[in-house]
Structure formats: C-alpha cells, structure tokens
Computed example of a mutant assay.
Amino acid sequence: MTDTPDLSTLPAPGGRLIDGPVTPVRIAVLTISDTRDEDSDTSGKILADRIAAAGHVCAAHEIVTDDVEAIRARVRSWIAAGAVDAVITTGGTGLTGRDVTPEALEPLFDKRIDGFSVIFHQVSYQTIGLSTLQSRATAGIIDGVFVFCLPGSNGAVRDGWDNIIRWQLDSRHRPCNMVELMPRLLEV
C-alpha cells in the first residue's frame, strides 16, 4: 500500500482551487524499467493511487523495458486509441546508457512543455538538492495528449505529481490549468 496524502487540504501552489467538482482526466501510467515487475513497481503504484485519489481515472498502467521502440509503441497505442488525455511515465530519465525515455518520446512531441522541466527541478531541488541535475524530466504534447516523463524514484514521482502535475490537471485550479486547454490542443 502506498501513502496517498489528502491533497485536498493543501493550498494550490501558485494559484487557488475554486469550489466545484473536478473534471476527471483519463491518465495512463507507464513504468519504464528493465528490473521492475508488477510486484516491485512502487513508483507506478504511487502514481496510480494518487491519480485515483485526485478524482481522475487511471486508464491504464503498464511496464515496458528501457527500449526506445517499446516506449514509443506503448504511448502511441494509447494515444491512437483515444482512451487517454494524459500519459505519465516513470523511469528512464537519468544519465545512464539504458535511460532512454527522453530519446523515445521527445521526437514525438508536437510541442514541448519547457516550463515543466524547470519547475520539476525547482521542486526536486527542495527535496534532493543538487542531485536533481541527474534527471532529464521532460513533458510535451503528442497528438493532443499531455505526456509527462518523471524519474523512476518514488520521491521524484511524489514531487512531480504532488507539486506540479496534480494541480495542472485539476480543472478547478486557477488562474489556469491544462484541463481547460484540452479541447483546443489540436486546433490549427
């Protein structure tokens, strides 16, 4: 069992929450690892639990190896099926030779969300200090679907969800949130 805090009691960073129900977002979780399996995938479980606790739908939760084509195939499949509004990956954003998540997904981005990496590193620095330099956390939009790539550690997943993604995928967050952009992401 993972620790899922009651985030409804926390103030919204950089904004506020208005009263009303949350608009559920369909979010897929992809753990990228050569060593994790269903029993040892703690970071994926943390994300799935927090997604549900925030009133969203965990539309899928899978594990793939650190392989560029496997990562791309899984994400493309979810997006092509039209079953997800966002994908959150955990793992593969480090500096070792097997860390290939940015290489797999950034070429697919129609648009990068440059500010995500900046904010992630600010949040992460508060937790782990200079070790945040070892992360290549990234985010972008692929065919109208938000894709957030987090490191594989439980702490990084908590930092990324609790302090950034959770708030931007909450339709009640003001002055703005990413949910209100979803209907317009594919406009030309």
Rank of each mutant, 00 (worst) to 15 (best):
R172F: 11
D85V: 12
F116G: 04
P107H: 09
I79A: 01
T132A: 14
Y125P: 04
E103L: 12
I79P: 03
G14H: 05
L185F: 05
E69I: 06
L150K: 07
G160K: 03
I165H: 06
R98Y: 08
V157Y: 00
Q134P: 02
T23G: 06
F116T: 02
P175D: 10
V100M: 04
L17E: 10
T42H: 14
C58F: 05
G44I: 00
A52Y: 04
D34G: 06
T89Q: 00
V22Y: 11
A104M: 07
I63K: 06
F120E: 00
H61G: 11
H121N: 15
V68E: 03
C58N: 08
P107M: 12
V179F: 01
L7E: 14
P183S: 10
I46A: 13
T90E: 02
L95S: 10
V22T: 14
E69L: 13
P21K: 14
L10Q: 15
S124L: 08
I142L: 03
V25G: 05
G92V: 00
W167D: 02
S77A: 15
R74S: 12
W161N: 09
S117Y: 05
L95H: 10
L47W: 03
Y125M: 11
S40E: 07
G20N: 11
I119G: 02
N177P: 07
V75L: 10
G140I: 01
W167V: 10
D114T: 14
E69A: 15
N177V: 10
V68L: 07
D6N: 15
V87K: 02
T23P: 05
D19V: 11
E180A: 14
K45A: 15
R98W: 09
T138G: 07
L186Y: 06
D19T: 14
V147Y: 01
G97Q: 13
D37Q: 08
V29K: 00
P24Q: 05
A70N: 11
T23A: 12
I88S: 02
L130S: 15
R166P: 03
T35A: 13
R50V: 05
Q168K: 11
I27P: 00
R98H: 13
R74F: 08
V64Y: 08
T9Y: 07
Q126S: 14
V123H: 08
C58T: 15
T93Y: 02
I164M: 11
H56S: 05
W167H: 10
I63S: 06
L185E: 10
P24V: 01
E62V: 14
R72M: 06
T96M: 08
F120Q: 00
E62Y: 09
D110A: 08
F116D: 05
A28E: 00
A73E: 14
V57A: 07
D170V: 01
D6Q: 11
G92M: 02
F109E: 03
G44P: 05
T2S: 15
I71H: 05
F120W: 07
E38F: 07
D3A: 12
I32V: 15
M1E: 12
